[in-house]
């Protein structure tokens, strides 16, 4: 199995619960990297804190495990100092859009060539099931025993508005789609966001009586449709998957290099 070279097998079995979607994201990510034939040396993965962020411990590439919500800030530094490397930042929904929301919108605004993954299980898994800015209304959580009243961010719309130049959504059920989207996101020359709808059977699933992991995956299968499909018009509750934005705009590191050249020329 060729993906094994990208794994730190000594840490397996991994720490995630049975049926946790984060494992399927790891699975798809290493396969996406493998299909591109990338060497381990050209990839840097930077994460913050959360069950999702533990993903950097299992991949045998350059990795940094940093602070809750601040992975994109660290990644920005890595990318600016070594623009030739591929920088991938896997984040949880809380990590990316609660505590890390400010870093998220500004990284998108700069269009820095980083691949941001939002592993969206709609809950704070690591700390025991508190609701997040992606939980949405009418869900049960440890901090919402009578259900939530906070609407969720639409990660896709938010990312597009903030300036991300590649924006996509996929799920842990549609794994072939996920591998293909991850590959395109990594290849994109600009800030790319991939929202991955994922399952936390332990907290979100249990609190909302959604059944086991397989049952939650059935929910993702039935609750989502390819972008632009007619089904969405008939049933607005369906969530669209696919690529929502893909465009070329000046990339931050390239612009920074131009400024450096201008500064050097000015000094001579």
């Amino acid at each position: 199995m060729t993906i094994r070279k990208y794994l730190r097998e000594r840490f397996f079995p991994h720490m995630w619960c049975p049926g946790c979607g984060h494992g399927t994201v790891l699975n798809a990510l290493v396969r996406a990297i493998e299909t591109m034939g990338m060497s381990r040396n050209e990839i840097v993965m930077v994460s913050g804190i959360g069950c999702s962020s533990r993903i950097t411990g299992y991949v045998d590439v350059h990795t940094l495990h940093t602070l809750h919500g601040r992975a994109l800030a660290f990644a920005t530094g890595v990318k600016l100092s070594k623009p030739e490397l591929n920088v991938i930042v896997p984040m949880g929904d809380g990590d990316a859009l609660a505590i890390g929301g400010n870093h998220f919108i500004h990284a998108a605004r700069r269009n820095i060539a980083i691949t941001a993954l939002v592993m969206n299980n709609r809950i704070y898994g690591m700390t025991g099931g508190q609701y997040s800015p992606l939980s949405g209304c009418d869900v049960m959580a440890a901090t919402a025993p009578y259900s939530t009243i906070d609407p969720a961010f639409d990660v896709v719309a938010l990312s597009v508005a903030a300036g991300a130049t590649f924006v996509a959504r996929c799920t842990t059920y549609h794994v072939k789609e996920m591998i293909d989207i991850l590959r395109q996101a990594i290849l994109h020359e600009g800030f790319s966001v991939v929202e991955i709808l994922s399952q936390c059977p332990t907290y979100f699933g249990r609190a909302n009586k959604l059944g086991d992991a397989a049952e939650m995956l059935r929910g993702l299968k039935e609750g989502t449709v390819p972008v632009g499909s007619e089904a969405k018009q008939k049933n607005p509750a369906l969530i669209e998957r696919g690529i929502f934005a893909q465009q070329e705009k000046p990339e931050y590191c390239a612009e920074y290099e131009k400024i450096m050249q201008r500064a050097r020329a000015g000094r001579e």
Binding site: H22, L26, A28, T172
Partner: peptide
Amino acid sequence: GMCMLRCPDLAIT
């Protein structure tokens, strides 16, 4: 290959 791709524990080849 779907079992291999979906397994959260990367247990299947």
